[in-house]
Design a binder for these strands. Structure first.
Length: 886
DNA sequence: GCGGACTGCTTACCT
DNA sequence: ACAGGTAAGCAGTCCGCG
């Protein structure tokens, strides 16, 4: 910085005139303009470079008018953007109209984007016949679909809609499938096309797997050969940077508007896998003399900026340097704010390597992964991370998966000292990065494997739900087999019937069976369950949209129980085959291998990731057929899966009873057996695989199991004394902490029970716990925090129109005080006397607490356990309650 | 005008 | 934007009550 400028700046700072900084900046900007070039280190401008590397992403470049691919070369750690410059592939749709018929449609012939027609032969799975289709080829994706005068809209209709097939597939996906590209795999450019770099699979592995699958009664054809590289090619190291920004806010509790970008980015933090640990901090005059923060790691460098524009330029340069940019909520906030802020400060669009769509933010020279969206995905939350985090916030996820949390701050962001701000900001970036690196890069590996299986570009994969993943996988498999992808209307039109009535109003068909529990304490209970029941059913009973209610009259006697549906006897269904394959290879190979102690840790770890990725697809495979927006939506498939599932569990219960074994409970795919004995368990398992063709396994063994009359509600104690709790209120996230604690004490007591006699002592201890709970409540010894209910808002406040639940009442009080309240927020409130009976914890006093309401809650929480033990709640607190009446 | 029986809404959980 | 089934608490409605 020039001396003169510095001097003036110091003067301003000393005077505390923040506004005057702008003038200084203008001088700075003029002087340093020459250095404001974007320093891109991507390499597609180097003509001699050969495109090769891991395929991270495929997209469409509107300016160049062709598809592109982003390849990351782990050796030189650079990203290469390859373009289909020769236009080897063009957008198209398929129609059953002949070329001659098409030529009679003037709008089609005169369409600006039309390139020409071609002829293809496809297998129509719905009708079990080969058909000739005409390929209508266009110059750009919008000519195919997406505009009112697109080609697909100009075609005539039949009873199911426009006579256009495969016309709604995004072009960059279409390009991926047709070129048989597998994102996440290594490619090299050859003759203007991308070619898969051959992955050597050890012969013995191949043979092992081949033999394992051969024992199955399904013909898997070339699937094994195609997928082995996908599962076995390792994920290389990929450099990445996590970014996080902090923005000045004049008002508390207001999230800055990322479109307005009215205020300064006062801090921007970076944490990368190649050692970049920096925080850019904007100097603000009134915050000059601030204290040092001890906790900031020594490898983190704080760089102070005076010139806002310069800071942003440096920021953009960092974004340009990495193949992967990671954020937590960057789609809606960080990158969006940065973009609009840059525009506000005078940057031209072309200078900002960020591209915004309605709810996504992409980086031009790499791939932006918004971890918020990825971790928000329920399939990831449940199947990949086993429900370890319940709330989707950076802090909660970090605590659950990393064991670290955000920096605690006592003041609003805008009032922190610059060092405190830097520390806080850096920690967020670091946590964000660590969410992709922890456990030997588990998250990144998972993402790469999921892109390989789904064939989705990484950007799409991390933002979309499982139904999109399965859709993409199915599309690709249709193309490989030369199957015509049916129009969704055809599937619903031809097989839209449902034969069962759901138990829950508003649902579409009947689901699983929950066995009426036998209340009481049962010792020595063994739980048997079907290993992934629904996928097994889909595999074993040949379920697929084309095989359920197939066209052949001779198959109509192959009935699905409880329905009028029948299943094809002549052909293997596509879904049955694919899901069957994924299931078999997981169950027979990857899952056992992930537990094989003879393997080195790395190998085992890898098998474990593959196994988890497969689980996500397998578990979603049933639900998607009952989801309207899924393009292969087919209720008879979902309904048949559930019906056969019910058949399996009912038959198993019947068989158990025949063997003289008592079934005390069961849910969907499990049976709880009382003192069954080794031999009868073996017999049941043998019977199941023989009779039903589905594997039954021992899942859990309880020393004792406590059941009330409530379904989905039990407490089991394993032989080692650990306790398995399902569905009980005491464990629910919204239950006040004081009750959760009391509940946990009860659980601890019950864990020590070994025999019937022990229950007497336990009962006495539980009585003490309950009475202590009552006493502390009456004496108002609990803090408001401990008494608070924590309930999530699932939609915007305005959308609660039918009723006003308590947490909404509390949230509205908060909103009235100017708090920013949005969906996903957890509202913390206590129950108070009088109207409206509820207050946000922040506004309540301990003396307003409605003690009677809380007593009711104590009662129900305890009753759930006591019911099962055959103890009356009044028996436990009876004396005290009577006292109160007198 | 008030409370009990009922239905519906909402959330969190189970498989 | 994968499915259906269950528990719990509260909001809102209807009806009877001289």
């Amino acid at each position: 910085m020039k001396k003169a400028v510095q001097k003036r700046l110091t003067e301003y700072i000393n005077k505390g005139e923040d506004k005057s900084l702008d003038e200084v900046e203008i001088e700075e900007v003029i002087k340093e303009e020459a250095t404001y070039e974007v320093e891109a280190s991507f390499t597609n401008d180097n003509e001699k470079e050969i495109a090769s590397g891991i395929l991270l992403s495929v997209g469409y470049d509107g300016t160049k008018g062709c598809a592109y691919a982003k390849l990351y070369n782990p050796e030189n750690r650079k990203l290469f953007i390859w373009y289909d410059e020769e236009k080897t592939h063009r957008p198209y749709l398929l129609t059953d109209l002949s070329r001659e018929e098409l030529e009679k449609i003037p709008d089609v012939i005169n369409h600006k984007g039309l390139i020409g027609f071609g002829e293809v032969e496809k297998y129509d799975p719905l009708r079990d016949q080969w058909v000739k289709m005409t390929k209508v080829i266009a110059d750009d994706p919008l000519s195919i679909g997406g505009k009112p005068n697109s080609l697909r809209e100009l075609l005539p209709s039949d009873q199911w809609g426009k006579r256009a097939w495969e016309a709604k597939i995004r072009y960059h996906h279409c390009f991926t499938y047709d070129n048989n590209l597998i994102p996440g795999m290594p490619y090299i450019e050859k003759n203007k096309r991308l070619q898969l770099i051959e992955v050597k699979i050890p012969e013995n592995v191949k043979e092992n797997l081949f033999n394992l699958l051969k024992s199955e009664d399904i013909e898997y054809g070339d699937i094994l050969d195609r997928y082995l590289p996908v599962f076995l090619y390792p994920v290389p190291h990929i450099d990445r940077v996590a970014i996080d920004i902090e923005v000045f806010t004049p008002e508390l509790d207001r999230i800055p508007d990322s479109k307005e970008a009215e205020y300064n980015i006062i801090s921007a933090a970076f944490a990368s896998t190649d050692g970049l640990n920096k925080v850019f901090v904007l100097r603000r005059a009134n915050l000059e003399n601030s204290k040092k923060v001890e906790d900031l790691p020594s490898n983190v460098e704080i760089i102070y900026f005076v010139v806002k524009k310069k800071m942003i330029k440096k920021f953009l340069n960092i974004i340009n340097r990495y193949p992967i940019v990671i954020t937590f909520n960057g789609d809606n906030f960080d990158l969006r704010y940065l973009y609009h802020r840059a525009i506000r400060l005078g940057f031209k669009k072309e200078e900002i390597p960020i591209e915004l769509t309605k709810d996504e933010a992409h980086v031009k020279y790499g791939v932006h992964i918004d971890l918020y969206k990825f971790f928000y995905n329920n399939a990831i939350k449940v199947y990949a991370f086993g429900n370890a985090y319940k709330e989707v916030t950076l802090d909660t996820i970090a605590k659950a998966l990393l064991g670290t949390s955000k920096v605690e701050i006592e003041k609003p962001i805008s009032e922190l000292s610059l060092e405190e701000l830097a520390h806080y900001n850096y920690q967020d970036a670091k946590i964000t990065l660590d969410l992709t690196t922890f456990n030997d890069n588990l998250t990144l590996k998972l993402i790469i494997l999921l892109t390989r299986i789904s064939r989705l570009p990484m950007e799409d994969l991390v933002r979309q739900g499982v139904s999109s993943w399965v859709k993409s996988l199915f599309y690709a498999e249709h193309r490989i087999r030369n199957y015509l992808i049916p129009r969704p209307e055809e599937i619903t039109g031809l097989k839209g019937t449902v034969d069962t009535t759901p138990i829950i109003k508003g649902k579409k068909y009947k689901g699983a069976i929950v066995v009426e529990p036998k209340p009481g304490v049962h010792f020595n209970v063994v739980v048997l369950d079907f290993a992934s029941l629904y996928p097994s059913v889909i595999k074993k009973y040949n379920l697929s949209y084309e095989t359920v209610r197939c066209v052949h009259p001779e198959c109509r006697d192959q009935k699905v129980p409880e329905t009028n549906h029948w299943v094809c006897k002549k052909r293997r269904g596509l879904t049955s085959q694919i899901i069957g394959f994924l299931r078999d290879i997981r169950v027979k190979w990857f899952k056992p291998m992930s537990k094989n102690k003879n393997l080195p840790d790395e190998v085992r770890n890898w098998y474990s990731v593959v196994q988890q990725a497969l689980k996500v697809f397998i578990n979603a495979s049933y639900g998607v057929f009952g989801a309207e927006h899924f393009p292969f939506y087919c209720l008879p498939v979902a309904e048949s899966t559930a019906a056969i599932g019910r058949y399996a569990i009912m038959k198993t219960i019947k068989k158990a009873k025949e063997l003289g074994v008592e079934v005390v409970y069961g849910d969907t795919d499990s049976v709880f057996l009382k003192e069954p004995g080794e031999e009868k368990i073996r017999e049941l398992i043998r019977w199941s695989s023989g009779e039903l063709g589905i594997e039954l396994d021992v899942d859990k063994v309880y020393r004792y199991l406590a059941l009330s009359q409530r379904k989905k509600n039990y407490l089991g104690v394993f032989n080692d004394g650990s306790v398995d709790i399902k569905g009980l209120t005491g464990k629910k996230r919204n239950t006040p902490i004081f009750l959760q604690k009391a509940f946990m004490e009860v659980v601890r007591v019950l864990g020590e029970v070994k025999s019937v006699e022990d229950f007497e002592k336990a009962k006495e201890k539980i009585r003490e716990i309950a009475q202590e709970c009552y006493r502390k409540l009456e004496e108002r010894k609990y803090s408001l925090e401990e008494l608070a209910f924590k309930v999530q808002l699932t939609k915007p406040l305005k959308q609660y129109v039918k009723t006003t639940p308590q947490h909404v009442k509390a949230a509205r009080m908060l909103a009235a005080q100017g708090k920013d309240i949005r969906p996903g927020d957890i509202i913390t409130f206590v129950k108070t006397r009088g109207v409206p009976g509820v207050k946000p914890v922040q506004y309540a006093s301990i003396y307003e607490i409605d003690i009677e309401k809380y007593k009711d809650h104590i009662r129900t929480t305890f009753e759930q356990i006591l019911d099962a033990l055959g103890i009356d709640f009044s028996e436990i607190v009876g004396i005290r309650s009577l006292d109160m009446f007198i």
